[in-house]
């Protein structure tokens, strides 16, 4: 796996590990990025459907 360097406040991810949500910080960051990608994808899809509705009914 390729390493992507990123600076972030340790407190952000340390707590997730400390509370037992993730076994290590890498796993927490990977999951966060995966969720971000999915969120962006749904937002893009949402925009696309709005454009479809506008074109379909009024365009």
């Amino acid at each position: 796996m390729e390493t992507v360097p990123a600076k972030l406040t340790p407190k952000l991810v340390n707590e997730l590990v400390k509370e037992g949500w993730y076994s290590n910080r890498s796993e927490a960051v990977r999951d966060a990025v995966r969720e971000l990608v999915e969120k962006m994808r749904l937002e893009t899809l949402n925009d696309a459907i709005k454009k479809d509705i506008e074109w379909g009914l009024n365009g």
Partner: peptide, 27 residues
């Protein structure tokens, strides 16, 4: 397809999908 829509827009095209076609047919 989302990637195809994004590419089409980047190339100056107007992409629309199934929902747009059904609504246009209604109109």
């Amino acid at each position: 397809d989302l990637a195809a829509r994004i590419t089409a827009e980047a190339n100056g095209l107007e992409p629309h999908g199934s929902i747009g076609i059904l609504l246009r047919a209604y109109r």
